[in-house]
């Protein structure tokens, strides 16, 4: 028996070494990418990073805690607007306003979590969708602060006297995504992640083990709103023009799709799912008439052939080799 555990341990060490090497390789490739890509390619890659950040947060909520949210586009929007307003109008340094905006949005996320304590599945989906509509409407109608339907045009942010252009923003996004992966890894491996997994399986069992489900749901909502808001703050300065319409229910559904396509409850899945959702439509843009048709078909095919998501496939291939 001890031999078996030993073997298991060496195997686990081997896979973790393999995973570490793979991660390092990906990071190196990501660092080198700007020297190979043109401006458009860099934009697509930065957008992938931004959406991956949202997906990382949403995956903690949906993949681990099993709570469906259709208001993450609104969190994303609140983060974008808060960062933009703090930086542009209040003159707060960009990195600080990213952090403050994210903390503020985390509080909003905690408030949204209150009905989530009682609601389940589709009821929760519709309630969060309602919150999304309300938040988007507030952004739209609070014209004095957000300029309403006119949108906000933004100039490039400045960090320590250095103006952040496309390349700088890409490296900032890369750094934040790396931090985000590290954070999500810690949360999912730690006490919170284990608690969330049990809550997903059975709230009654969680309660019997002395896990306060309500508190952990609020924490999960707040953390994932934090991720979405940081991504929003990066997004605002990536596109440099934000409009309330950017943050509609359709985007929330897209975020949820990323998480499911990538793989529920996996960190790699969040990244792969975001990449699929951003890059595939860009590749299909050349096909006349039918980019939607091909993308929709791919979505169906991926789900039918890989119900556990793309990351499940990656993992299976990794195990075989």
């Amino acid at each position: 028996m001890s031999a078996a555990t030993d073997m298991e341990r060496t195997q686990r060490q081997a896979t973790s070494v393999g995973a570490g090497a793979l991660l390092g390789l990906c990071l190196a490739a990501a660092c080198a990418a700007p020297f190979v890509l043109n401006g458009y390619g860099l934009y697509v890659l930065t957008l992938t990073g931004v959406f991956a950040l949202v997906a990382l947060g949403l995956n903690l909520l949906t993949g681990y805690a099993g709570q469906i949210s259709l208001c993450h586009a609104a969190f994303f929007g609140v983060g974008a607007y808060a960062t933009a307003i703090l930086t542009q109008s209040a003159g707060v340094p960009y990195l600080l306003s990213l952090l403050v905006a994210a903390l503020f949005t985390a509080c909003v996320g905690a408030v949204v979590a209150v009905p989530a304590m009682r609601l389940k599945s589709l009821y929760l989906a519709i309630a969060t969708l309602g919150f999304g509509v309300v938040l988007q409407k507030i952004i739209f109608e609070w014209r004095g602060l957000t300029n309403g339907g006119g949108g906000l045009a933004l100039s490039p942010p400045v960090i320590a006297g250095y103006e952040l252009r496309a390349m700088g923003l890409y490296y900032l996004t890369l750094a934040v995504v790396t931090l985000g992966i590290w954070g999500a890894w810690n949360v999912s491996r730690g006490r919170t992640g284990r608690a969330l997994l049990i809550i997903k399986e059975s709230e009654i069992a969680a309660g019997a083990l002395g896990i306060p489900a309500a508190r952990y749901k609020v924490i999960a909502f707040a953390i994932s709103a934090f991720y979405a808001a940081v991504a929003g703050g990066l997004f605002a300065y990536l596109v440099r023009y934000i409009h309330p319409e950017n943050f509609s229910v359709g985007l929330s559904i897209a975020f949820l799709s990323m998480v499911v396509i990538g793989g529920l409850g996996t960190i790699g899945g969040s990244i792969v799912g975001a990449a699929f959702y951003v890059i595939v439509p860009e590749l299909l843009r050349g096909i006349k008439d039918a980019p939607g048709l091909v993308f929709g078909l791919l979505l169906v095919v991926v789900m039918v052939l890989m119900p556990q998501g793309l990351w499940g496939l990656v993992r299976r291939l990794g195990r075989r080799s």
């Binding site: 499911v260 048709l293 993308f295 929709g296 979505l299 169906v300 789900m303 039918v304 119900p307």
Partner: peptide
């Protein structure tokens, strides 16, 4: 049918893809 027994969310996202497909087909 292939998705019976898989996570429900996978089936839901598949219907979302179907939504896009049917919309494009009707458009074509």
């Amino acid at each position: 049918r292939p998705l019976i027994g898989s996570p429900v969310l996978s089936a839901i996202i598949a219907t979302l893809g179907l939504n896009i497909v049917l919309n494009s087909v009707a458009g074509l």
